[in-house]
């Protein structure tokens, strides 16, 4: 199996404050990893650094995507290479039509890959197909990007965008937070539909319930800026039961993920 993501001994600061402190993580093609961990541990920070958000300084370590140093690329280049971040807090863009936005994104990525732009009719067919999988309402297409969307609608819209853009690496930052049961299932369907031999996913979550629907290959616990523990899906169940305090008690058995 080929490597999709390799994070090697990553140290990073935000406004002078050290957040990531020697983080290691490896995702192979076809894998889905979950990341759990207490608030403020650095989970979103990790996602933002991989995606290339301004304001984070990598002080040492490496991030390789498909074997290439991704930190050298501009944010939009990373996206075009196949990195997708489903935002913990999706952003509203008033006046910009959701469908128009998504088509602009898709065509920007196609252009990067040297493909011709997708015409409106083909795009619409693609979009309808994806909507069905996600069980989404048509009218989200006609509205402005996330403007006035409910919390759940915003999260669904993220997954919808992911489904259309078909990234190589998808990072889902608490996409399950604030979802009702039906929406949770729809989001899980979207993720599962995209699972495939040449993709990998990093699912950041606080709750085991999402992992009932999206069964991960590996579960990591991110605490205090590094991976404190890794294990199989059962790790999530233990955490749910015992809380993160259990980790400290068992500090000595922290394992490297493989």
């Amino acid at each position: 199996m080929s490597m999709i993501l390799e994070v090697k001994d990553l140290y990073a600061t935000v406004e002078g404050k050290e957040i990531l402190k020697g983080l290691n993580l490896t995702l192979k093609a076809g894998e889905v990893h979950a990341i759990m961990g207490p608030n403020g541990a650095g989970k979103s920070t990790l996602g933002n650094i991989i995606a290339g958000r301004d304001g984070y300084e990598v002080t040492s370590g490496e991030v390789l995507f498909k074997g290439k140093n991704i930190l050298e690329l501009d944010t939009e280049e990373r996206a075009c290479e196949g990195v997708f971040l489903a935002f913990q807090y999706p952003v509203e863009i008033p006046g910009v039509n959701n469908t128009y936005f998504l088509r602009a994104a898709l065509n920007a990525q196609r252009k990067y890959r040297g493909e011709p732009p997708m015409d409106a009719a083909t795009f619409l067919r693609l979009v309808r197909k994806k909507l069905k999988v996600l069980d989404l309402k048509d009218d989200l297409l006609k509205r402005a990007v996330n403007a006035g969307f409910s919390g759940g609608e915003k999260k669904r819209n993220e997954i919808f965008q992911m489904a259309v853009l078909e990234p190589t690496l998808a990072i889902l930052d608490e996409t399950d937070s604030g979802l009702d049961i039906d929406a949770l299932r729809a989001v899980a369907n979207g993720v599962n539909a995209l699972r495939g031999a040449d993709r990998a996913m990093l699912v950041i979550t606080h709750y085991q319930r999402l992992l009932d629907h999206i069964v991960p290959d590996v579960v990591h616990v991110l605490a205090d800026g590094r991976i404190a523990r890794s294990g199989g899906p059962e790790l999530a169940l233990i955490l749910e039961e015992k809380g993160y305090a259990w980790l400290q008690e068992n500090d000595s058995v922290a394992v490297e993920n493989s």
């Binding site: 944010t75 996206a79 971040l85 935002f87 006046g95 920007a108």
Partner: peptide, 24 residues
């Protein structure tokens, strides 16, 4: 910056992102 990052993260160039946001 969050609007801009959102667009860039989807692969849209900075210039296109700004004009899209302003146009909206």
């Amino acid at each position: 910056e969050d609007q801009l990052f959102y667009c860039l993260q989807r692969g849209i160039s900075e210039e296109d992102a700004v004009s899209m946001i302003v146009d909206g």
